[in-house]
C-alpha cells in the first residue's frame, strides 16, 4: 500500500446492507454520482458523494467488464480505495424487467395515495424503479 501513487488499480468495494457485493482491485470504475457520473482512477482525490440510482461500470483494459445497478447510496473515494455503500445492488444482466415494471407501477400507486410525509419515499422508489428499467433497456440495447 506504500506505493499507491504508482499503483495501476484502485480497491473497489461495493457493499449493500445484506452483503459485500464486490471487493476487488479494478483499473477504473464509473459511479453514478448525484451530480454527475464520477470516474475513479487510482490516485483520485478524497471524495464523498451521494449516489443516484444508476449503473456502476467496472472497466478493465479499456473495456467495461461488469455492470451493476445500484439503487442509490453513498460513495467514498480515497487515492487507493473506492467504497460504494448501496441500498441495493443487482448485476445488470440479472435485472428482472417484469419485476421492475411492477415495482414502478406499485410505487406510482403509493405516490398517488401518499400523504405529505410518505411522498419523498415513494418518489425515491419510483426513481429506483425507473433506473432499474433504464438499466435493463440499456443492457438489451447493448447486446
Amino acid at each position: 500500500m506504500a506505493e499507491t501513487n504508482t499503483a495501476t488499480t484502485v480497491e473497489f468495494e461495493l457493499v449493500s446492507p445484506q452483503k459485500l457485493v464486490v471487493s476487488e482491485p479494478v483499473e477504473m470504475v464509473v459511479v453514478p454520482g448525484a451530480e454527475g457520473d464520477i470516474g475513479v482512477l487510482p490516485g483520485h482525490s478524497p471524495l464523498i458523494a451521494t449516489v443516484r440510482p444508476g449503473v456502476i461500470d467496472i472497466h478493465e483494459a479499456g473495456k467495461v467488464k461488469e455492470r451493476i445497478f445500484v439503487g442509490g447510496g453513498f460513495a467514498e473515494v480515497s487515492p487507493e480505495r473506492c467504497t460504494v455503500l448501496a441500498e441495493e445492488a443487482t448485476a445488470v444482466g440479472d435485472i428482472d424487467r417484469a419485476a421492475a415494471e411492477t415495482r414502478l407501477s406499485d410505487a406510482k400507486q403509493v405516490l398517488e395515495g401518499a400523504d405529505e410525509g410518505a411522498t419523498a419515499e415513494a418518489e425515491r422508489q419510483i426513481a429506483i424503479a425507473e433506473g432499474l428499467l433504464a438499466a435493463a433497456n440499456g443492457a438489451s440495447a447493448g447486446n
Partner: peptide
C-alpha cells in the same frame, strides 16, 4: 447474514466518522 451485513455497517460508520 450478520457476518454478511457487518462490512456495510463498518464502512458506513467510517464514512460518517470522516464526515
Amino acid at each position: 447474514s450478520v457476518e454478511a451485513a457487518r462490512p456495510y455497517a463498518v464502512r458506513m460508520e467510517r464514512m460518517l466518522g470522516s464526515l
